[in-house]
């Protein structure tokens, strides 16, 4: 890493070092360390239950670390809570509003708690909330509630926003609006930290991705670094009837030692490694020899899904 340019702030927006969080016996976060650069979009990617929300909540000052340290904007989220809270925006995974409150009323209320809130009409327009302003919160659709949650997180013009699964339950149009807004915040100098289990969201939006699983950091990098590293491509083979038990081993023997063959489920196999067009021919030949009828056989660029699969042997999508 090269030294930061002189005008850039010296410290990262978020610094987490050796964080351990437990719920009773269960370890939710297990020695996690990561940093978030200022004015960037950082995605914390992982399956449900990986410890994403717990990690975020320590940065938001909701939970005390059981071990390790968390610093946000060079402040301790618990001890310096009062100084930090006005500077951050938080979007919870759900709820956060009275059931009988109207959408515009709720947003106006949160705005009034801040010294220099955004223009409410413009923000509502941008997030497609203008039409449902008079609607009580409990009658908003899931996507509208999410967008209102996002509006509440950004209305106070924070330096850093934490958004937890921002697009869960949104339709594609709303998802795109949300992505555009987050990118625009970043361009305006706001630090954005989001959790997601949608790899597409992380891949398209994030400047930097931290992949976590079982409360541990298992990979970090830009989307390009993560997908380019290791192997160039993957082959996915889906068949019509379940594979014989020795299929992965037998296919690996046909392809040679340099590839890895993983059985995803009874009817699909992923080949990672230096795969190319000739590997496709080998797989195709193997199907013929073993009386296996392919439903689909594709050669694709490595995705974050593949990265996750290689690192954990499991699929990310839930």
């Amino acid at each position: 890493m090269s030294a930061p340019p002189p005008e850039a702030p010296a410290s990262p927006a978020v610094e987490i070092d050796g964080l351990v969080m437990r719920y009773g016996e269960k370890v939710a976060v297990d020695g996690l360390s990561l940093t978030v650069d200022r004015a960037s979009i950082t995605a914390v990617l992982g399956p449900n239950g990986a410890g994403k929300t717990t990690t975020l909540e320590t940065a938001e000052g909701y939970r005390s670390p059981h071990r390790g340290t968390v610093r946000v904007l060079d402040l301790d989220p618990i001890r310096d809570r009062r100084a930090l809270l006005p500077r951050i925006g938080v979007m919870l995974q759900g709820g956060g509003a009275w059931s009988g409150v109207r959408a515009d009323e709720m947003l106006r209320h949160v705005a009034r708690l801040h010294a220099h809130p955004l223009d409410l009409d413009a923000l509502s327009d941008r997030l497609g909330l203008a039409d449902c302003g008079r609607t009580p919160y409990r009658r908003l659709s899931g996507g509208q509630q999410q967008r209102l949650g996002l509006a509440m997180a950004v209305v106070g013009r924070p330096e850093i926003v934490f958004v937890d699964e921002p697009t869960a339950g949104m339709d594609p149009a709303a998802r795109r609006t949300t992505w555009e807004l987050l990118a625009e915040l970043r361009d305006a100098g706001v630090t954005v930290v989001l959790t997601t289990h949608y790899m597409e969201e992380a891949e398209r939006l994030a400047d930097r991705i931290h992949i976590i699983d079982h409360g541990r950091l298992i990979a970090s990098g830009t989307p390009l670094e993560l997908t380019r590293g290791g192997h160039a491509a993957t082959i996915r083979l889906v068949v019509t009837t379940p594979f014989p038990a020795d299929a992965p081993e037998s296919l690996r023997r046909s392809l040679g030692d340099r590839v890895e063959v993983t059985l995803l489920d009874a009817v699909s196999i992923v080949v990672t490694g230096p795969a190319d067009a000739s590997s496709l021919a080998v797989v195709s030949r193997w199907c013929e020899d073993n009386d296996v009828l392919p439903e689909s056989l594709t050669l694709g660029q490595r995705t974050l899904e593949d990265v996750f699969l290689e690192l954990t042997g499991r699929e990310l999508a839930t």
Binding site: P86, R87, L113, H114, R126, P158, E184
Partner: peptide, 15 residues
């Protein structure tokens, strides 16, 4: 289509 908005940070609590 979109109205230009200034999202640059300007945090602070109300009195």
């Amino acid at each position: 289509r979109r109205e230009e908005m200034d999202f640059s940070p300007r945090p602070g609590p109300a009195p």
